[in-house]
C-alpha cells in the first residue's frame, strides 16, 4: 500500500493579537505525533485558530497570526489545492448522505486519493474502526445505517489511513461508545498532529499540552503536570466504570454494584 510519509512535519504558530488588539505573545511549534488540546468558552476563537492554520495565515486574517510549515513561510498558492490541504477536520456531525456500503465508501475515498491496491488499506480501516467502535459492523453495512459511534470510529480510522493532511482537527469526540484513547493513539501512530477542541477533562488531559483561548487569542499554554497525569488515570477509571454501567443498563441488568475495587 502506498501512503504518504508525513514524518518530520511541524507547524509554528506566531502570535498576532486578540479581539481587542492586545498582542498575543506566542511562538509555538507543534511536531507530528503531538496531541494538543484547545480549551476555552464557546465563541472564544477556537475555530478561528483552526481556520488560521488551515488557511496558512500570513498576517492576513482577523487575528494577524502567521503560520510556518517546517520553519518556512509556506507557498500560499497551495491554499486552494485540495490535494495539499493541511487540516482534516473530524466535525461533530457525522451524517452520511451517500447511499453506499462501508466497503464501497472507503473504496471511493481511496480512489479519490489515488491509492492503488486499496484492498489492504480498506481491510485495515474496517478492522480498526470495529476495534474502536465496540459494536461490530460489516463491510457491506450501508453507511447510512451506522450508529453515531460506528460512524465516528469509521471516520477516525479512515482519516488515519487515507487522509494526506498532516493535521487532524477533532471537534469534541463525545462519549458515543467509542474508545477515545485508542482513537487518539491510532492517529498519533500515523504521525499526525492532533488538535482537539474539547470541554471533556479526559480528552483535555490526554493532550501533551493545552492551549487556553480567551477573547480571540491564545492566553496560556499549559503543559500537563505529574498531578494532572495522575488525575487522568483516576478519571479514566471512572469513565470505564461508567461505561460498564451503561453496558449493564443496555443489557437489562441491575445496577447494584458501584464499589471501587
Amino acid at each position: 500500500m502506498k501512503l504518504e510519509d508525513e514524518k518530520g512535519f511541524d507547524i509554528t504558530i506566531i502570535g498576532g493579537h486578540d479581539k481587542d488588539g492586545n498582542p498575543e505573545d506566542l511562538n509555538l511549534t507543534i511536531y507530528s505525533g503531538e496531541v494538543v488540546s484547545i480549551v476555552g468558552p464557546t465563541g472564544s476563537g477556537k475555530s478561528q485558530l483552526l481556520g488560521d492554520i488551515e488557511w496558512m495565515a500570513q498576517k492576513d486574517t482577523p487575528t494577524g497570526r502567521k503560520i510556518l510549515i517546517n520553519g518556512q513561510v509556506p507557498d500560499v498558492e497551495k491554499r486552494f489545492d485540495i490535494d495539499s490541504k493541511l487540516v482534516a477536520q473530524l466535525s461533530q456531525n457525522m451524517n452520511f448522505v451517500m447511499d453506499v456500503t462501508v466497503k464501497e465508501f472507503v473504496e471511493i475515498h481511496a480512489s479519490s486519493r489515488k491509492i492503488e491496491d486499496s484492498e489492504e488499506v480498506i481491510e485495515a480501516i474496517i478492522t480498526q474502526a470495529n476495534q474502536l467502535a465496540g459494536e461490530e459492523f460489516l463491510e457491506d453495512t450501508p453507511i447510512t445505517s451506522l450508529s453515531g459511534g460506528q460512524s465516528r470510529a469509521l471516520m477516525i480510522a479512515d482519516t488515519a489511513y487515507l487522509s494526506k493532511s498532516p493535521i487532524v482537527l477533532i471537534d469534541e469526540i463525545e462519549n458515543a461508545g467509542i474508545d477515545r484513547k485508542s482513537a487518539l493513539d491510532l492517529l498519533v501512530k500515523r504521525e499526525k498532529i492532533i488538535l482537539m477542541a474539547t470541554h471533556d477533562p479526559i480528552l483535555a488531559l490526554m493532550g501533551d499540552k493545552r492551549l487556553v483561548i480567551k477573547n480571540g487569542g491564545i492566553n496560556k499554554i499549559i503543559e500537563s503536570t505529574a498531578a494532572e497525569r495522575k488525575n487522568l488515570v483516576l478519571l479514566e477509571k471512572l469513565d470505564k466504570k461508567l461505561l460498564m454501567m451503561r453496558n449493564k443498563l443496555r443489557n437489562g441488568e441491575i445496577i447494584d454494584c458501584i464499589g471501587w475495587e
Partner: peptide
C-alpha cells in the same frame, strides 16, 4: 454545507468537482 457531512465525503465531493 461541509459541516453536515463527514470529512471523507467532503474530500470525495471536492475530488469529483476537480
Amino acid at each position: 454545507k461541509g459541516d453536515i457531512v463527514s470529512q471523507a465525503e467532503r474530500e470525495i465531493f471536492a475530488y469529483r468537482v476537480k
